[in-house]
Design a protein around this nucleic acid. Structure first.
Lengths: 236, 236
DNA sequence: ACTTGTGAAACAATTCACAGCA
DNA sequence: TGCTGTGAATTGTTTCACAAGT
């Protein structure tokens, strides 16, 4: 068990990925799993998986492997996922509504407790079970009693910066955004960006620079390679 | 200009991010920009930006900076974005439809030319202008004449593996998926994964381990720090 | 005076390889 | 024998610091 060391951010991501595969394995009735097996499901080197876990403790049995359920509990504890997390959504348009009603978030323990917008024509729309798009100006009233610390920003809304600051005032402590936020968010507040088109751009780059031999021919310039199965940084 | 060197995947991502900010700056009429300015918009170190560009050439003027429009052209060329890219979507459910009609993709040069599904109850649905959800079994007939090399997978559909292989046969050479794909995709085919909940998990970790002092108190265990503004790897 | 471009240095992450234990 | 856990070696990435150009 490595102690006092800095945990690479990439380790935390991989932990979430391992957890996803463990959930799947448990659903299929698997009792134990080796680092080799779990690592290949997650497409990483087995030593990487063991090193990732070693930052937090010793969870396996030599010669045997890991208990699927046991490791799941451990990783959930590490990530802080032994409790439900409430969420609010900024942006009550089509994309926001689709993500909410798709049920993906609930499946993974994230519960949408409020949806906000700054556009009068969107405010008041009903979304799924007992959810109505609220005026962002009411966030300060509605959020604090709901224990909501995370916000997902789904689209550009008028005065995005102002909205973000209202949410900060209302107790939001972390953001996942599908759009760039130029607001001056204090550096203590984690913000994750996720952008479809940035990832598509990396695919375009890869296809353009002939890492794929054998497809239709779009070779331009000399081949340049990106070292790995391209691993994505969801920045904006 | 560094030549013959391997380009870090992270560099390619950042190039796409720089491009986004340059597009915004050009829209606002900016003519030139320094590495300091562009780097701070993209939240990276200025030396990082210059190093990223130096893999591909010398695009700036010492003492002056970069031409916004010139650099935009250069980065677009590097990424292979001087042409439109056609896209197909696998998964004609709510999430897929919302992403398509939101117009984000078109704005960035990605055009949805076909939508497929394997669920009879979804096939035939109309989506926006002249788009109808097609049976995945027809992909081999419909795609090749459309010059579509990229596919976005928006949800789990029945026989996902089979669908993916049909798409490969139909000429698809890169995937962006919102769900895990266990299909044996040849390693020459780039696959990018994007998962909301993995990113939320990293936020949950950060909030759980008190990197945020001053919020509501959810301290459990001793504080562990992740080195940076958490930077996301969109793996699954 | 100011800003780029880039070797060299510093830092970080991954992988190896094997000791240690069931 | 088989698989974990981990220090050491390797590999990769970022940042520094300054020469060079305008």
């Amino acid at each position: 068990m490595e102690k006092g060391k800095k945990i690479p951010a990439a380790t935390i991501f991989r932990l979430s990925v391992y957890r996803q595969h463990l959930l799947e394995m448990r659903k299929q009735g698997r009792r134990t799993v080796s680092s080799l097996e779990l690592a290949s499901a997650a497409r990483v080197n087995p030593a990487q998986l063991r090193k990732d876990l070693s930052y937090f403790g010793r969870f396996g049995v030599r010669g045997v492997g890991y208990s699927v359920d046991g490791l799941l509990q451990e990783i959930s504890t590490i990530l802080g996922l032994r409790r439900p997390w409430n969420l609010c959504v900024l942006g009550g348009g089509k994309v926001g509504r689709a993500i909410i009603v798709s049920g993906h978030l609930e499946q993974r323990g994230y519960f949408v407790e409020a949806v906000f917008d700054s556009r009068p024509e969107i405010i008041g729309h009903s979304i799924g079970p007992g959810l109505v798009v609220e005026d962002i100006r009411g966030a300060g009233m509605s959020l604090p009693q709901k224990e909501v610390f995370l916000c997902m920003i789904t689209e550009e809304v008028p005065d995005l910066n102002g909205c973000v600051h209202r949410l900060l005032d209302a107790g939001i402590r972390g953001f996942l955004s599908l759009v760039p936020v130029s607001a001056s968010i204090p550096p203590t507040i984690p913000v994750q960006y996720m952008d479809f088109t940035t990832l598509l751009d990396t695919l375009a780059y890869t296809l353009t620079h002939g890492v794929n031999r054998g497809g239709p021919d779009f070779l331009e310039g000399e081949p340049v390679t990106t070292e790995k199965p391209p691993m994505g940084a969801c920045l904006v």
